[in-house]
Design a protein around this nucleic acid. Sequence first.
DNA 1: TTAAATATCACTCAAAAGAGTGATAGGCCA
DNA 2: TGGCCTATCACTCTTTTGAGTGATATTTAA
Lengths: 208, 208
Amino acid sequence: MPVSIVLFEDNDRLRESLAYLLNSDPNYTVKGDFDNCNQAAEIVEQLTPDVVLMDIDMPGKTGISGVAMVKQTRPETAVIMYTVFEDDERLFQCLCAGANGYLLKKTPPARLFDAIREVLEGGAPMSPIIARKVLNSFQHKPDNQYNLTSRETEVLQLLIKGNSIKIIADELNMAFDTVRSHLKKIYLKLHVNCGKEAIAKALKEKLL
Amino acid sequence: MPVSIVLFEDNDRLRESLAYLLNSDPNYTVKGDFDNCNQAAEIVEQLTPDVVLMDIDMPGKTGISGVAMVKQTRPETAVIMYTVFEDDERLFQCLCAGANGYLLKKTPPARLFDAIREVLEGGAPMSPIIARKVLNSFQHKPDNQYNLTSRETEVLQLLIKGNSIKIIADELNMAFDTVRSHLKKIYLKLHVNCGKEAIAKALKEKLL
DNA sequence: TTAAATATCACTCAAAAGAGTGATAGGCCA
DNA sequence: TGGCCTATCACTCTTTTGAGTGATATTTAA
């Protein structure tokens, strides 16, 4: 019996190409393909696929909600995300929602067959960059992808402990305005607008 | 130039088989093989391998200490664990110590070549069961040990995204002062004094 | 040896946030 | 029925923070 698959992907051409590709192998059969995942729960309940391929950016509900819905209504369904996004935010949201795999769209199509086989064996197919991000998330060591200077790092470390500018200045023996000066640069480098966003970003991405 | 590899594995026959296997491919060369990792730091410093294959159960220091030492002295070294153990305890200790991959010994030897290629591409080769365990570790549910009400939770969720009070009020269709009212209660319940501390605590303790 | 980056501090102005106080209304439950 | 909790909103006052601008000394790198 071939592996049954359902696709959620809003790009019509891509979705049809994928369906054609998968159907061309007798071991796989696409039971349904949809350009949104608003009815994902009902669909997996009806079609009972072995594997779901899920885009993230779709009209209506995002694939992040999509994987959550699928996993809630039919947990035994293997869900592989298939997306262009490789930011930490969406990646970990998908994983927390129960995704079983995460492939970037730049993945060569042939790899898709491997991934589906792998996920059915209980594995977790991931693109290399994604796998690396996942492993890095276990290390509590900083990455400094934003090129913070050592002084800026010190300031940010104190900030994410919830300290006020006044306290930080005292702690690092510098003037109030110097701390603010550093903070401005930090916000620039992190692309945020205020301390709260900086804390959120630093902690979410384990910068320190 | 072939990929240079160092092996740490106390089973002599297995270690020699691995070395023979890897050396049989001109693209790979085993620069050294050792039955313990007590001198792992000095060894990688001397031999500067691209990849280290590391057993866990060895006389003297464990492979867990081993990967930590290697990563500390030469972080650019890719370390792949190669072990029979598949318990969560050792697995996550290795990941936290900085392992770049985790293969079970039941892995077919041919897969080793894939794994080495994968780790050099920035990926994280893992046996399917291991990958599954890693992904499962992300499915944490919120705890709500501080007895936040549903409304307070909504406010906190928006706060930790870095939103201002004004934005939160708008988002939840409530008055500016109502949001502040909720925030005051949230700060009380979390035992913090300001929004920055609340964000830090909520994210560190994965409250939401 | 110049130019760039870094670290330092100062001043102003406006916006945001925290502290304190109090009020109203609906739901729940004993 | 009368508390208790939750959610809602309002007002004041003070502190904190962000944005803008600019200056100076030191270090680093081209």
